[in-house]
Amino acid sequence: MATVDVPLERVRFGRTARKDGWWVMPLTTLVVFTSFIVYVTWALLQGDNYYFGNYLSPLYSPELFGNSPHAVFGPWRWPWLPFIKYSPAMLILVFPLAFRMTCYYYRGAYYKAFWADPPACAVGEPRHNYRGEAKWPLLIQNLHRYALYFALIFIVLLSIDAVKGFIFNDPKTGHATFGMGVGSLVLLVNVVLIAGYTLGCHSFRHLVGGVMDQMSRAPTRKKVYDCASCLNRHHPKWAWCSLVFVGFTDVYVRLCATGVIHDLRIF
């Protein structure tokens, strides 16, 4: 491998000649990410108020074992950890979180915001040793596509929740009727944003067509690749919108469940 003949000067941490607000984006990432992690951890530990009638919080979906009518297999019947209350979200939240943590876009964003590696483009770094994603522990980021497979399943599950959000039980007759509340729209927007984020994923784009050098031989895959590329061009926007909205959806369901707000029925 070619080498550089003259030793290069190392730049001190934070040193740059940039005059723009280079620190705004990493700081925003740090604040939003930290807020999201704190909120999700809190919501995860609650274990209640995660559903309201036909609405189920996306942080708790699918509810495999739980006490709500949404639980697939009924209540949790086995011993649980002594110092933490059982919460249905603890069984499933690792999958969407793994997808986001290994996402190519988020990786670049949180390396800057949390590790200052680098703090921003052309700004000096705090550390001189660097392993990148070529060695452990960040080699594990290569498992992103496995997280993608689960994320694709979650689109289906959240879509089912969104459909259920439009089916209300008539209190007079006890029959299921089609209706729409503000919560129905919140669940619908949530799954649309998550689908837009997941289907624009770099790994998905690669698997559906990017791996081929002659896409003309597979016209259908080419079309899917083009659609994924279209979403991929705005991947950061989808990533941020879906992140914020999944938190908002949980807040909405929680506020309805605790009676703080009343879910407005549109029809």
Partner: peptide, 12 residues
Amino acid sequence: AHGVGYCNITKC
């Protein structure tokens, strides 16, 4: 040899 794993996707 090309070290693609060193890229940590800063997009700079």
